[in-house]
Nucleic acid binder design. Structure first.
Lengths: 332, 332
DNA sequence: GCATGCTATTGGAGCGCTCCAATTCACTCG
DNA sequence: CGAGTGAATTGGAGCGCTCCAATAGCATGC
């Protein structure tokens, strides 16, 4: 299991180690003849460059770390797709880590990335403490996605919550709804903004009087609890949930109670995850502009590699609404 | 952004680089006094060992790669949890990669792992060709999970499909069902075994005459199509689906047709993913023994590191059945 | 007082690569 | 025909660490 090195390839091809190195860096200053001879010998010997040695010598890993908060949440699978694709097309290799919804584990994963000398780290909805973020930001470029931190050296990419709320409220009001409830995400990341912009949009639509907010969390369970509360009291004509999982919980309770969606109640989710796409639910949902967010994130990392001491940037990107069968005009 | 090295720490603590190295390897032969002085200086300087250099010098990365086929499938999130935990407790660091359901991408990811000199790779339901597998297995220990390959040097960990099928059939027959349909996974990995053991179990239960199989795929869409077919013809009293996603598709169609679960039809899934746990579905499902499978996989990697030329092992592990509200006795 | 055996520490070689300055080897041109 | 040019190639230093053999320091026993 001892593997060939550059030296071996060089000897086989009758050239120097440096030349082999140049070939594997795609350098233009290698003659066609040498190049093909080296490549042929490398192939024959089964040589693959040792990334470790390369990185150590060049002090550049061309790798970025992507830290995801919770791989059980299908939203993060979408996030990953978009960010991995973007990193790749920018010439980076992506390394993944799973935070498992614990700040401590995330810090650990972030440290692992740093130890591996990644060129930058993208943190999706991280729960890491500001102090860890601050100290790590001195070592490598960090971009927070969907968490609005205010630290001197940490860039932030958000989707625009205001537009998201407006899209939902406009859609529902356009269908004729006036009595709209929002089940919020409690103390979860971004929940406050989502709630506040809902209220603002309702006020703008002149519906300040009929708007309601129920406290929740970003889970299916919280959705069920909120729905139980609603079916015992006055049912609205539309329910706008903090995310798709909450909406799934609400749908379960409504179904059990024989309340039809969208016949009796329209239902809206957030994040447009695989749950929303399930035919069983077919949920109208706000889709985050992940591709654009990924693009902005990698861009920010590149900028910070060039200029490490730059002030922090915040980028906001507009989401869109995906309408499905869970919303319709209210019963006359 | 230039970071301190061992040399810096050694100078600050007034010792040699070697001693610092020993401290960071937790060597017992360092005096308590030196150890604490070194650690204090390292802390003060913000030193973190360079993993790259360490790995290059020691020729051991203490890292294993985990290759997942499809992070959109919640099953793989569960797989990841189990395997990551196991790797960690065995003293390995886990590196992740996402195959996105394409053999070509998986090969690429596997090569990346190899380039990074991981000590071993665990491949979950891989689609990689046997030839790539064979050539890579000469370089690093490979374990295939849930795909029965027959290659001289590649170990295999499976859950026991026979027991899974028996659990489902016994459960349904125990409830009084006789007319049971299986919607299979088509040409997907493991689909054939799942189907064949279903048929065998039905025969064993003396129900060869009333068993039916419908061709499908491992997707929600396939579930819907199969269900359309069933509702147009003779509905069975129980439907056993190749996985949870298929069951979700079936449930959507049955609900639309006003067919009650489990009142009219009992429904069983496979994999016990987050979908099965949704209150909306509350699906009886077969749970794969992921923790035990993870344990076996890491064990096999360790064994192959010690003895690279060993013949291939195949390990089968028994699954369990999780019963939920989607199954009940058939209508009298 | 000296060989003996410890344990704690050190210097140096080397892991496989990159990068830079230096060299070689045609060619061209005045 | 020698200086000059540019492209292709090379040797060597060094990236930050580990590992090994060597050494220092010190108590022990005869």
């Amino acid at each position: 299991m001892t593997r060939p090195t550059m030296e071996d390839v060089a000897a086989a091809a009758g050239v120097s180690r440096s030349l082999v190195s140049l070939v594997f860096q795609d350098s233009p200053k290698v003659s066609e003849a040498s190049r093909s001879r080296v490549l042929a010998e490398a192939e024959r010997l089964g040589y693959r460059p040792n990334v470790l040695a390369r990185q150590l010598a060049s002090n550049r890993t061309k790798t970025i770390g992507i830290l995801l908060d919770d791989l059980h949440n299908p939203y993060f699978a979408d996030v990953l797709d978009a960010f991995e694709a973007e990193a790749e097309s920018a010439g980076y290799r992506a390394l993944l880590a799973n935070g498992r919804r614990e700040g401590e584990r995330e810090s650990e994963a972030l440290r692992t990335f740093i130890d591996h000398r990644v060129d930058g780290v993208i943190l999706a909805s991280p729960r890491i403490s500001d102090s860890v973020l601050t100290s790590m930001s001195k070592i490598a470029p960090l971009v927070c996605v969907e968490r609005r931190v205010d630290l001197p050296r940490v860039d932030v990419v958000m989707h625009d919550e205001q537009i998201g709320a407006q899209l939902v409220v406009d859609h529902l009001v356009g269908l004729g709804h006036r009595d709209i409830v929002h089940i919020d995400g409690g103390s979860g990341a971004g929940a406050a903004a989502r709630r506040d912009w809902f209220m603002q949009s309702m006020r703008d639509a002149g519906l300040a009087a009929s708007m309601r907010v129920i406290g929740g969390e970003f889970t299916e369970h919280a959705g069920r609890e909120a729905a139980e509360q609603l079916v015992r009291g006055a049912l609205p004509t539309a329910i706008y949930c903090a995310n798709d999982a909450v909406a799934a919980g609400v749908a379960a309770v409504l179904q059990r109670e024989g309340i039809s969606i969208p016949g009796d109640v329209s239902l809206v989710g957030y994040d447009d995850t695989m749950l929303a796409k399930l035919d069983l639910l077919s949920l109208t949902s706000v889709r985050q502009p992940l591709a654009a967010m990924a693009n902005a994130s990698v861009e920010l990392i590149n900028r910070r590699i060039d200029k490490p001491r730059r002030g922090a940037d915040i980028v906001d990107i507009a989401p869109t609404l995906v309408t499905r069968r869970s919303t319709a005009a209210p019963r006359a």
